[in-house]
Amino acid sequence: MSQGGGGVNLETSLGYLLKEVSSVLRAAMEEVLRPLGMSVTHYSCLELLAQRPGLSNSELARGAFVTRQSMNVLLQALEREGYVTRPAEPPIGKALPARLTPRGRRSLEQATAAVRSVEVRMLSGMTGAEQSEAFRILKTMIRSLRDGGDGAVRSEELPPAE
């Protein structure tokens, strides 16, 4: 709730609601990943490497929304535990491209099923058409924010607070 006239009304703030969804989704994912010995960041790293083998530490950090330092610590642990492999020397430049090992792939299969169950639960109250529309809307929001606000909506164009 907003105090005074100029603050954000948390009850009607779309940004606040998106942050709440993100927080609840992360907690639900952590809950199903914990028994597998994983965190969301660990899972994200493995998923990114499965889809884009050879990513560098920096690329993985960007994709998992963590710092390069955090990703480096995680990659070192994953390498020690046999989930990923990286060359001893960089093939080009400074980057050490990472790849999943067979153990990493097996672990990822279990984690993907667990994470997918959370997503299915999250979307269970929506029709297929609503899911498609939500996806489209969220992608539009991302594009708008990344484009620097060229199509920014003025406050008077926002729907009234309930």
Rank of each mutant, 00 (worst) to 15 (best):
L46N: 04
E59Q: 15
A50L: 10
F65Q: 14
P160Y: 03
N57S: 12
A95P: 09
S144N: 14
S117W: 05
E109D: 12
T101H: 05
C45G: 00
P90V: 03
C45H: 02
T85V: 13
Q76N: 13
A113G: 13
R68Q: 15
G4Y: 03
N9I: 07
C45R: 01
P53L: 12
V120H: 13
T41K: 04
L108R: 02
L36N: 12
I92R: 15
A113R: 15
C45I: 05
S39A: 06
I137D: 08
R34P: 02
G4V: 00
G63Y: 03
M122A: 15
L33Q: 11
E47K: 12
D147L: 11
L46M: 14
K139E: 06
R105A: 06
L33P: 12
L145G: 13
E133K: 14
M1R: 09
R143V: 08
V8F: 05
G148T: 11
E30I: 04
A161E: 11
G125P: 01
S23H: 11
R86E: 04
N9H: 13
E79A: 01
E81K: 15
I137E: 08
P160H: 06
S107F: 01
G5I: 06
R52T: 06
K19A: 14
S44F: 01
A161L: 11
L145R: 15
E79C: 01
L46G: 06
T12F: 12
G149W: 09
L123M: 14
V120A: 14
P90T: 05
L100S: 01
A98K: 01
L36H: 11
Q131K: 15
G151C: 03
H42W: 09
S58H: 09
G15C: 07
M71V: 03
R80I: 07
T12I: 03
G63E: 05
G15Q: 10
V73K: 15
L145M: 12
Q3H: 07
E47F: 04
S117F: 02
T12Q: 11
L78G: 01
G5Y: 07
G149E: 12
E130D: 13
L25S: 11
E133W: 13
M141G: 10
Y43V: 00
E30S: 10
P87C: 00
Q110G: 05
A95D: 09
P91E: 02
M71K: 05
N9P: 05
I137Q: 10
R136Q: 08
P53T: 09
Q51R: 15
G104C: 09
P102K: 03
V40T: 09
E156N: 13
R121I: 03
H42P: 02
N57T: 14
Y43P: 00
A129M: 10
T101S: 07
S58E: 11
M38S: 12
G93A: 10
P90M: 02
G149H: 13
